[in-house]
Computed example of a mutant assay.
Amino acid sequence: MCKLFIEADSQLWKPNTRSIRIDGVVTSIRLEHFFWNMLEEIADRDDLSVGQLITRLYLEAMDADHDLGNFTSFLRVCCSRYLSLIADGQLERDARLPLATLDGKSMIEFEAENSKARHTEIDKRRRPTH
Rank of each mutant, 00 (worst) to 15 (best):
E40R: 10
E92R: 11
C79L: 09
R45F: 06
Q90F: 03
Q90V: 07
M107A: 05
L4M: 02
N70A: 13
L83F: 00
P98N: 10
I86T: 07
R45I: 05
V77R: 07
D103Y: 02
L31D: 08
F71V: 05
P128V: 06
H130F: 02
Y58N: 12
F34Q: 11
P98F: 14
E113C: 02
R45T: 04
H119N: 09
F74H: 08
D47M: 07
D123E: 08
K124E: 07
D46N: 11
A64F: 01
F34N: 00
S73C: 04
I20W: 10
E109M: 11
S10R: 07
D63K: 09
S19N: 14
M62V: 09
S28Y: 10
H33L: 15
R18Q: 15
D9L: 09
R45N: 06
S10I: 12
A8N: 12
V26Y: 11
S73F: 13
C2K: 14
L31V: 11
L102I: 13
R126P: 01
G104N: 03
S80C: 08
A64M: 02
R93C: 03
E32Y: 12
Q52C: 04
K14P: 00
Y58W: 14
D88A: 13
L59Q: 09
D88N: 10
S115Y: 01
L99W: 05
R93D: 10
S80F: 00
I122Y: 04
E109F: 01
A117Y: 01
L99R: 06
E32L: 13
L102A: 09
L85W: 02
M62G: 00
L48R: 06
F35M: 14
T17E: 14
L12T: 11
P98L: 02
D123S: 06
D23E: 10
R21C: 06
S10Y: 11
R21I: 15
E60A: 12
P128F: 12
I54W: 07
E113G: 04
F35G: 11
T120H: 06
S115K: 03
L59E: 13
D23I: 05
E111H: 08
E60W: 05
E109G: 01
M1Q: 12
R76D: 03
L97T: 11
P15V: 14
L48N: 06
L102V: 12
I22A: 15
S115R: 09
N114W: 00
A112K: 03
L39F: 15
F5P: 00
G51N: 03
L57G: 09
R18H: 14
F71L: 10
T17D: 13
L68H: 05
R76S: 08
E111I: 00
R21E: 12
T120R: 03
H130W: 03
D23T: 08
C2V: 11
S115M: 10
R127H: 08
M107Q: 12
V77K: 04
A100E: 02
H119W: 13
W13E: 07
A64P: 00
N114V: 04
Q90D: 07
D94A: 14
L102Y: 01
Q11K: 13
G51C: 02
R96V: 05
L68Q: 07
L48C: 08
I20S: 13
T27A: 10
P98Q: 06
G51A: 12
G89K: 10
I6A: 14
K3V: 12
H130C: 04
N16I: 15
F34M: 11
P128S: 05
L57A: 13
C78F: 04
I42G: 09
W36P: 02
I20F: 13
A100H: 05
Y82K: 04
T27I: 13
